[in-house]
Structures are given as C-alpha cells and as structure tokens.
Amino acid sequence: MPVNMKQLINLVEKEDWPFTQGHRLCPGCNAPMVAKWATMTAKALGYEPVVGAATGCLEVSTTIYPFTAWNIPYIHNAFENVAATISGAEAAYRSLKNRGKLKTDKPIKFIAFGGDGGTYDIGLQSLSGAVERGHDFLYILYDNEGYMNTGNQRSGSTPPGADATTEPVGKVKTGKVQFKKNIVEIIGAHENVYAATASTSDPFDFMAKVEKGLKHEGPAFIAVLAPCVRFWRIPESTGPKVTKLAVETKYWPLYEIDRGVYKITRKPRNFKPIEEYIKSIGRFRKALQHPEYKEMIEEMQKYVDTRWERLLKLEEVTKGMYLR
C-alpha cells in the first residue's frame, strides 16, 4: 500500500516535520516540496532518513549557519559529490552495524538530494560510481533545468530555447540548442537500479516511487521535474500547474525503469502540443520571438512523440525481464 494523506498528517502530528519551516528558499519554490514529500514518506514507512545534499538552492537555503531546516540528520559536502558522500555514510552504517557500534536498531535509509547541475553535469561521475557499487541509497534529483542557485546558467538539463545566462538567446542564436540529457535512462542503464521520473504535479506518484526506491535493496534514483519559479519566469504559485502541462505534453513522461523493466506510471488520455507547455513558461519568451525557434519546437514535438512511442514499446518488450 502506498502512503496516503492520513498517514502523512498523522506522522507530522505525532513526530513533527522531518523537513521544517524557516528555510529560505524562494516563495513557491518546488524544491522544498520534493524534500518534504520524500522525507515524510520515508518516515511514514518507519524508516529513519539520513539526508545528504549537493551544493545548490536546497542546500544553501536550508542550512544557513546556525539555522537548519532539517529535523533529521543531514550532511552537505560539496557540489559534485553527494552520491559519493552518502555512499561513504552508507558504508559506515553497514560497518558500524556489523561491529555492533550503532546506538540504534531503527532502519536507517539514505537519501541524497541534488539539483540538475550536481547530477547531470558535475556530479554525474560520483553518482554513476555510487550506483555501480550498489550502495543502498535513494538519490533524488530536483530538476529545475539550470544552475538556478547562481542565477540561471545553462546545465545539461536546460531545454532548447530556454534562456540561460551562459547560453542566452541573442540576435543570431535561439539560446541552447541541445535537448535535455536523458538522465533517467543513463542511470537506469546501470541495471541494478530503480530509476524513475516524477513531477511536482503528482505528489502521490512521486511518493509511491520514493517508497519503491527505499524498499529496493540497492541504489534508486528519481528525477523530479521541479520548477524554479523565478528563473522559469512563471507565477510563484504555478510550479505544479506547469509541471502538469509538462506531463500532458509528453515533455516529461512519468515512468520508471526498475532493473531494466520499463513502466509508464501515468498515461494521459489526451496529449497537448508541446508548444502549449513552452508558451506557459516565461523562460522561452525570447526564443519564441525568434523566427528560427518555430523549427525547434517542431523538432521537439517530433522528439517527444517518438520518445513516447519508444517508451510504450519498451514497456511492452521489457515486461517481466528484470536484469538483476
């Protein structure tokens, strides 16, 4: 049974929020939603979450010395190494437990949070290494498609045409031209892993995946589309609304790769054109004014259609074929 609302409210009433008030993320930021849902789920399932964070908005704004918004053990080391850091903590847990040096018998679960910069780009090696080694941890990527902590620089996750200060839209350029790196398939290809996408528009789908990830003995990875309201140039209140559109336009399909087995977890009945999604986000406004961007949107539409068809086929082909 996946966690439900009552369980979560009961948990907070009884044990307090694992991730608490007073953090200094922007109003309407989607990152704290991800942190809150993930840690609550772990707690509601009876686990003791120990959290690691990569340098980024979530880290900077929740632990401004001497203030911490974490009600559970937390560690930050650097930008590119949260997976390695948490793999060390997990190794310590196994060792101390074996040697009878732990003060608790409660089951500890390790959760690492990273933004897209710390995951797609500078932290990819560390993440790949930790996943390959099979540490028992859940890595949660809050993907806001850019280095938002430092003011909207481009990342390997930034979509084509999204204005970014290090690859801006200009007179002769429509901004970034590369599509997003397919991070879930990259991590999913490690095979011993539970990997999934999620969206802030669908907390229960996300929390069900958190549960699967925590219960999977070994590494798990969830990429959550989590807008930065500020640099996406969208109204503060509309993060989840926009990510809903991302799902409905196939821009961000919700699926999982469980040890090689594909499963689409949400199949919208009617799809909307990707242009609708792009037009809902201010970050694309400049590119949209560019005559050449029209072609890019068409390409993106083709891409998301093909990817969706591919996912459906992968779901069919891989059914029951667990690799590990």
Partner: peptide, 11 residues
Amino acid sequence: IDKPATAREYN
C-alpha cells in the same frame, strides 16, 4: 549545527 530544526527561529 548541533540541534535540529533551528530554522524555525527564523520567521
């Protein structure tokens, strides 16, 4: 930070 949830003191 040797105590949890101290951010609550920041409104």
